[in-house]
């Protein structure tokens, strides 16, 4: 273990599977919260729907005529995600903004607890098994054990997973960019600033908010689908409210309502998180730090996340990519 190892770990995590999952969910949150101002505190629910749709349809319902292959399961996952957005949105999008926050966070927990307590949905053990064989079957990388990119080394499957992850992200970024420079995006931003003003101008804000909730939810579900396929395992206790809060940290770190905000945020977030962890472990292992146990390193990471979120929102709410003119506005 040395500094090189620490950096390699940090870099590989910053662009790795976990960062991709969080990034997809955060990009959805960017549409909902960043552009439309919707306080969705239950993005994890959409992620869980994606993961569980794959797990249940591919493993639990193996051989069912309804799910002939992975691609159909992905389609179902997206449809379920739309359904969830409708269930959450129809009642709450007419209510005060903080009600959406409470209802979404509660819905996320309800969904997790239902998955956890229902054996046919995996129960407390979750779902493990070969998910996405069709996906791995079309891996175009040549048959060899490892692929080295500079200091980073990937197995053939990992290389394929990470490549596809970033291609999907690039496409969704393009989609976000195109939407947000259009009149549709302008209405969304208007709703974020003042919903009543936009209503008074003849727009059905409810309809636009619903569209934003659905679209952002689908992004999250894609993150969940990716999760199930990349990790080959779906565990109920992975889908806790804290996930969504980390997404908020990533979003605010990178800059909300910026197309590239979540990307910058996710890379920096995971780099720092892993760097701090590995660096502390390095210092402990070579005896530089004696007052810490290796088990105390995990909590330190999260203390830093919490403090980071507080300091960011207080001192730099516009994030790394923030606009100078907006900074002036915030100072008012």
């Amino acid at each position: 273990m040395d500094m090189g190892f620490v950096l390699t770990q940090a870099i590989s995590q910053a662009i790795g599977v976990t960062a991709i999952i969080y990034l997809l969910a955060t990009m959805g949150l960017n549409i909902q919260f960043g552009y439309a101002g919707l306080l969705n505190f239950g993005q994890i629910a959409f992620v869980a729907i994606g993961s569980y749709a794959i797990g249940v349809f591919i493993i639990q319902w193996q051989g069912s005529v309804f799910v002939p292959n992975l691609w159909v399961a992905i389609l179902y996952a997206i449809l379920l995600s739309v359904l969830l957005a409708l269930i959450l949105g129809v009642p709450t999008l007419r209510l005060r903004a903080d009600y959406l926050a409470i209802v979404t966070i509660a819905a996320g927990e309800i969904i997790r607890l239902i998955f956890k307590s229902t054996d046919s949905l995996g129960g407390a053990q979750g779902i493990n098994g070969k998910m996405g064989e069709e996906f791995y079957a079309i891996n175009p990388f040549p048959e060899q054990d490892r692929f080295d990119f500079g200091p980073l080394s990937y197995t053939r499957n990992d290389a394929w997973v990470v490549t596809v992850g970033w291609i999907v992200i690039a496409l969704l970024l393009l989609l976000t960019w195109a939407l947000m420079r259009s009149p549709w995006g302008r209405v969304l931003k208007g709703i974020r600033e003042d919903e009543d003003a936009v209503r008074s101008l003849g727009k059905s804000t409810y309809f636009f908010k619903m569209q934003a909730l659905i679209l952002g939810g689908i992004f999250g579900t894609l993150g969940g689908i990716f999760w199930a396929i990349a990790k080959q395992s779906v565990q109920p206790d992975s889908f806790v409210p804290a996930f969504t809060f980390f997404c908020y940290t990533i979003l605010i770190l990178g800059g909300a309502a910026r197309v590239m905000g979540p990307v910058i945020g996710a890379i920096i977030f995971w780099f720092l998180l892993v760097f701090v962890e590995q660096f502390l472990l390095l210092l402990i292992s070579n005896g530089t730090i004696t007052f810490l146990e290796p088990t105390q390193v995990g909590p330190i990471r999260f203390i830093l996340v919490g403090l980071g979120l507080m300091l960011l929102i207080i001192f730099r709410p516009q994030g790394i990519l923030g606009d100078k003119k907006e900074i002036a506005l915030d100072a008012k």
Binding site: A178, S182, P183, W184, G185, R186, L215
Partner: peptide
């Protein structure tokens, strides 16, 4: 027209 989600693309 551009306020339609699909058309906006």
């Amino acid at each position: 027209t551009g306020e339609g989600m699909l058309a906006s693309l």
